[in-house]
C-alpha cells in the first residue's frame, strides 16, 4: 500500500517538486528488484556509435524515465531492450543487456519471444487499419492465445479507453482521435500481459489534455507493469517517473538516480545545465 513519504527537500522549482511528491506518494515503497540491466552497452549504426558504455539497472514496477537532447541515443536504448534494433541491418550491439539476469543478446534468445515479454508503445500512434477489437486482440492472436471479449474489455479498461469506445468496438481504430489512438496502442500492448512496457515519447504528438490522460494512465500501469519511458519533456519525466536516466549527446548515460535527486541535486554539471534549460 502506498506510504506517504515525508517531504524533506527545499526546492526552488515549486512545480517540479510538487509533481515529484505526487508521484512518490502514490507509489508503494518496497526494495527495488532489478528487471532490466545494461552493463557496458555499446551500440553502433555502421561507423557511428549511438550508445557508449551504458550501465543502468531498471527496477521492477517503477516508472523509469529516459531524458536527454535529440540524438542522444535514448530511443536507441529503448529499441535495444526489445531488440527492435535487429530490424536495422547496420546496427551492432556490444556489451550486456539482461532481462531478469538473461542477456537478451545471447544466441539462444529469440527476439520474437522477448517481445512477448516486453511490449512497446511508439511515438506516433500506430493502430493497425483494423477494428478497435482486432487491434486489441492482434497481440493475443499472434501469440497463440485465444482472445475473449473479457480480454478486450480488460485491456481497454487498463488503457482507460473502455468507456469511450465500448459501443464502437467494430469501427476502425483509425477513426479515433490521436490521444485515443495512442491509448488504443497501449491497450494493444498490455492485452497480451507483458512484464515491461517501453514507451517512446508516447505523448509527443498529442495535445496537453490527451497527454495528461496518458500520464495518469502510466501511473496506474506501473501497478502491474514495469514502465520505461523515453521523453523529451522534463516536466513529464519529473511528474511521472520514479527513476530518471539522463543521456547526453554522444550516447553517454551521465546520470541515473531517483527522479527527485536528478532534478533537485544532479551530480553532473552538464545535467544541471540541461535540466535548467541552458541547452538541449
Amino acid at each position: 500500500m502506498p506510504t506517504q513519504e515525508t517531504e524533506t527537500q527545499q526546492a526552488d522549482d515549486q512545480l517540479i517538486t510538487t509533481d515529484i511528491q505526487h508521484a512518490e506518494s502514490t507509489r508503494r515503497e518496497q526494495p527495488d528488484q532489478t528487471v532490466l540491466e545494461a552493463r557496458d552497452l555499446d551500440v553502433f549504426y555502421g561507423e557511428d556509435q549511438a550508445l557508449r558504455s551504458v550501465d543502468i539497472e531498471i527496477p521492477e514496477h517503477k516508472v523509469t524515465a529516459i531524458i536527454g537532447p535529440s540524438g542522444c541515443g535514448k530511443s536507441t536504448f529503448l529499441r535495444c531492450i526489445n531488440r527492435m534494433n535487429d530490424m536495422i541491418d547496420v546496427c551492432r550491439v556490444q556489451g550486456e543487456l539482461t532481462f531478469r539476469s538473461k542477456n537478451v543478446y545471447d544466441e539462444d534468445v529469440d527476439p520474437v519471444a522477448l517481445r512477448r515479454k516486453i511490449g512497446q508503445v511508439f511515438q506516433k500512434p500506430n493502430p493497425f487499419p483494423k477494428s478497435i477489437r482486432d487491434n486489441v486482440t492482434y497481440g493475443l492472436e499472434v501469440q497463440g492465445k485465444s482472445a475473449t471479449d473479457d480480454d478486450v474489455e480488460r485491456a481497454l479498461r487498463g488503457a482507460a479507453l473502455w468507456d469511450e469506445v465500448k459501443d464502437q468496438l467494430d469501427s476502425s481504430g483509425l477513426d479515433l482521435s490521436g490521444g485515443q489512438q495512442q491509448r488504443l496502442c497501449i491497450a494493444r500492448a498490455i492485452a497480451p500481459d507483458p512484464e515491461v512496457i517501453l514507451m517512446d515519447e508516447p505523448t509527443s504528438g498529442l495535445d496537453p489534455v490527451a497527454a495528461s490522460k496518458i500520464e495518469d494512465l502510466i501511473d496506474e500501469l506501473v501497478e502491474d507493469y514495469t514502465v520505461v519511458i523515453v521523453t523529451h519533456n522534463m516536466q513529464q519525466a519529473a511528474r511521472i517517473s520514479d527513476k530518471t536516466a539522463v543521456f547526453l549527446t554522444g550516447g553517454n548515460l551521465v546520470e541515473f538516480d531517483d527522479t527527485a535527486s536528478v532534478f533537485e541535486d544532479p551530480e553532473d554539471d552538464r545535467v544541471e545545465d540541461y535540466i535548467t534549460g541552458k541547452f538541449g
Binding site: R115, F122, P127, Q143
Partner: peptide, 27 residues
C-alpha cells in the same frame, strides 16, 4: 504500408509470417 505498422506488430512478438499476412497484406 508504413513501417510504423510493422514495428507495432513486431513489438507485440509477431513473426514475419504474422506481419506479412495479417498486417501488410490487409493494409
Amino acid at each position: 504500408v508504413p513501417d510504423d505498422l510493422r514495428n507495432g506488430a513486431y513489438a507485440l512478438g509477431a513473426t514475419k509470417f504474422n506481419v506479412s499476412t495479417r498486417i501488410v497484406l490487409p493494409a
